[in-house]
């Protein structure tokens, strides 16, 4: 009991949940919890780091900001939103989690995510694996040539993997994993687009499908990447941004 009283008294100095409420429409419904537990019982992250979504929300409501800041659990919740889906009050726990990630100073956030975000910010392609414009153009051209040489069918169908084709209908994004580690896995999609008669293009810049800055909860940086993707799509006058994920 003593413990409990001390923790609740911390409420006076607590701003975290109030801060998050101001960011969300309807305050994310964060003060409507019925403590029914539907969220926790259907959350795959329940039990990790001694936490579950209901408990996390209760701790925030009780003003246990220090404990929330110290917990690694916000990095184990995938923000998959299943809890909102099953919650009778549609409480936005994932946004609470997203904002809890910002409580950790940038340099202390998980290195793997931070490195991927930083790398994407360094290259025009926004590739989290640091794939440059030149590398991308080379590897795409290389795979394409190989397929066309190996099978006259694709020569006949004029299989292409255009980069910066202006006025194409679709701007197609690409996860870095293929060009960097398994380039031949790009080809099936090209074949599908060719056979469906689709007018599409990659961009030399901002072709990346991934955005680790978002997972980092680095708002300025993830917005920068999305802006670059939008700009490249508009520059090429493509009608539709096609997410291949």
């Amino acid at each position: 009991m003593t413990d409990e009283a001390i923790k609740i008294s911390g409420k006076k100095g607590s701003y975290f949940i109030d801060m998050v409420k101001t960011l969300l429409p309807e305050g994310g419904n964060l003060n409507l919890c019925l403590t029914c537990g539907a969220c926790s019982s259907g959350c795959p992250a329940t039990g990790l780091a001694g936490m579950d979504p209901r408990k996390f929300l209760r701790m925030a409501a009780l003003g246990m900001d220090d404990e929330i800041k110290a917990s690694k659990w916000p990095w184990m919740c995938t923000m998959c939103q299943r809890c909102i889906y099953v919650c009778p009050m549609k409480i936005d726990i994932p946004q609470l989690v997203f904002n809890a990630r910002t409580l950790t100073p940038r340099e202390d956030r998980p290195k793997g995510i931070r490195d991927s975000c930083d790398m994407a910010l360094k290259v025009d392609t926004c590739s989290a694996m640091g794939c440059s414009v030149e590398d991308f153009e080379f590897v795409v051209g290389d795979v394409l040539e190989e397929i066309r040489e190996a099978d006259p069918f694709w020569e006949e169908r004029d299989l292409q993997a255009p980069i910066d084709k202006e006025g194409a209908e679709f701007f197609v994004n690409q996860n870095s994993r293929e060009p960097m580690t398994e380039p031949e896995e790009m080809a099936p999609l090209w074949k599908i687009l060719n056979l469906a008669g689709v007018n599409w293009t990659y961009g030399s810049k901002a072709w990346t499908g991934e955005n680790y800055c978002l997972f980092m909860a680095d708002n300025e940086s993830w917005k920068k990447i999305v802006t670059m993707q939008t700009e490249q799509t508009e520059k090429l006058r493509c009608k539709t941004y096609l997410n291949t994920e």
Binding site: P44, T78, P110, Y212
Partner: peptide
């Protein structure tokens, strides 16, 4: 829409918490 997340999202794959990620995916 009611499906369980596999545990690959939200940066979990890059976060370094491998044991927890595999537990999540069980």
């Amino acid at each position: 829409s009611n499906n369980y997340c596999c545990g690959g999202g939200g940066g979990f794959l890059q976060s370094g918490f491998k044991e927890e990620r595999l537990a999540y995916g069980k």
